[in-house]
Nucleic acid binder design. Structure first.
Lengths: 188, 188
DNA sequence: TTTCCCGGAATGAACATTCATTCTATGGTC
DNA sequence: GACCATAGAATGAATGTTCATTCCGGGAAA
C-alpha cells in the first residue's frame, strides 16, 4: 500500500532530478528506472507513458511550490509588506530546490508546457489579488496585470538562472535589494 | 560558389524554423533536409553533426540580433535616451522574428545553451557600457551588473513570451510603458 | 492455487550518420 | 562547337544505435 506510494514517489523524484540535469532528451526511461531502483516495466504500471510521467512530475512540483509561496501569508498586512513577503517566498522556494527550478524552466519552454502556460496563473494567484488591490488604491501603476507579472517574475526567474549558473551571488540581502527594485518598477 | 552559401543558408533557416516550431526533439535531420530542399546527406557536408548545426544556427541568429540591437545607436546621446533606444531595439528584434526568439528560448534553457550562457554578454555589451557609465554618474542603482541585466532582460523576455502566447498585446505604446518601468527599476 | 506485482530481456520504431553511387560543373582537347 | 575526363558536390538507401513500450517468467501475498 505505502509500497505503491513509495515506488511512485521514487519514480517521480528520479525523473525530476534526471530531467533537470540532462533535459528531456537525455533521460531515457531506463535511466529513470535505474535511479529509482525499479524495473523499467514498473514505470509503466504507474504511468501510461513517458508524457504522462512528465506531466505528473510537473503537477507534483507545482503543488509543493504553491504551498510554499503562500506559507505564512497574511492578507491583512500592509500592502508593500505583503508584496515583499510573497517575493521572498518565491525566491525561497525556487532557490531551495534548484532541481525543481530547472525542471520548470525546461517544462515551460518546451512543447510539454506550452499548453500549461496558463497554469502560471495558479502559481501567481496571490499576486493577482495583490495587484488588483494595489491598482485600486493607486499604489501601483495602472497597467495590465500581465505587465506587472512580467516586471516581477521576469527578473526573479532571470536572476535565479544567473545565480544557478554561478554568475550572481544571491544572498538574503541581495534578494531584498532585488525586491526593492521590483517594487520601484511596479509602484506608481 | 554562391550555391554553397545558399544551401548552407537554406539548411540553417529550415533548422531554425523547425526547431522553433517543434523543439529539438521533434525535428529529425530528415525533416530539416526536406524543408531545405536538400538531401539528408547534404546536411553532413556542411555540418559535422546535428549539434554543430544547432550551434551554427545559434551563432547565425546571434550575429543578426547584435546587428539590429546596436543599429542607429549613438553613444553620444543622453543617458536615459540611450537606454530607451537600446530597449526598443531589443523589443523590436525579438518581436520581429518570433521564430528566432523561440529558438533562443529553447537554446538557452537546454543543455545546448548552458555552456554558451556567457554569450549573453555579447548581446548585452552595449548595455554593459551603459550600466558602467550610469553607475559612475550615480544615475543607476549601485548594484552588480548582473542584477541590472536581470531587471531589464527578465521582464523583456517574459513579456514577449506572454505576447507570443497571446496573453498580452504589445504595441509601441505598451512597450514604451514597459521601458519606463524598467527605468524605474534600475534608476537610483 | 490463484492473483497480483515486478523486473528486465525482447521488440520494433525512430533517428542520426555513413557511404557507394549519381550528378554537375569546369576545363582541356580536337 | 562537340566531346570527354575529372573533381568534387549531392543524394538517399542502408546501417547501427537509442530509445519507449511490451511481454513474460517468477515470486510474493492471499
Amino acid at each position: 500500500m505505502s509500497q505503491n506510494k513509495d515506488r511512485r514517489t521514487a519514480i517521480l523524484e528520479a525523473a525530476l532530478g534526471l530531467i533537470a540535469e540532462r533535459g528531456f532528451h537525455g533521460t531515457p526511461a531506463s535511466l529513470i528506472a535505474e535511479r529509482a531502483g525499479v524495473g523499467v516495466g514498473t514505470i509503466y504500471r504507474y504511468f501510461r507513458d513517458k508524457d504522462e510521467l512528465i506531466h505528473a512530475v510537473f503537477q507534483d512540483v507545482e503543488k509543493r511550490q504553491i504551498e510554499i509561496i503562500t506559507r505564512n501569508y497574511d492578507e491583512g498586512r500592509p500592502f508593500r509588506e505583503r508584496f515583499v513577503h510573497l517575493c521572498r517566498n518565491v525566491y525561497h522556494c525556487l532557490m531551495e530546490n534548484p532541481l525543481e527550478f530547472r525542471f520548470l524552466e525546461q517544462y515551460f519552454d518546451s512543447p510539454y508546457g506550452v499548453e500549461q502556460r496558463r497554469r502560471l496563473d495558479n502559481l501567481s494567484r496571490p499576486f493577482g489579488r495583490l495587484f488588483f488591490a494595489g491598482k485600486g488604491q493607486q499604489v501601483l501603476k495602472d497597467v495590465p496585470d500581465k505587465m506587472l507579472y512580467s516586471l516581477v517574475f521576469g527578473p526573479i526567474a532571470f536572476s535565479i538562472k544567473e545565480h544557478n549558473a554561478g554568475f550572481l551571488q544571491l544572498d538574503a540581502e541581495r534578494i531584498d535589494l532585488f525586491i526593492g527594485a521590483l517594487w520601484d518598477a511596479i509602484r506608481r
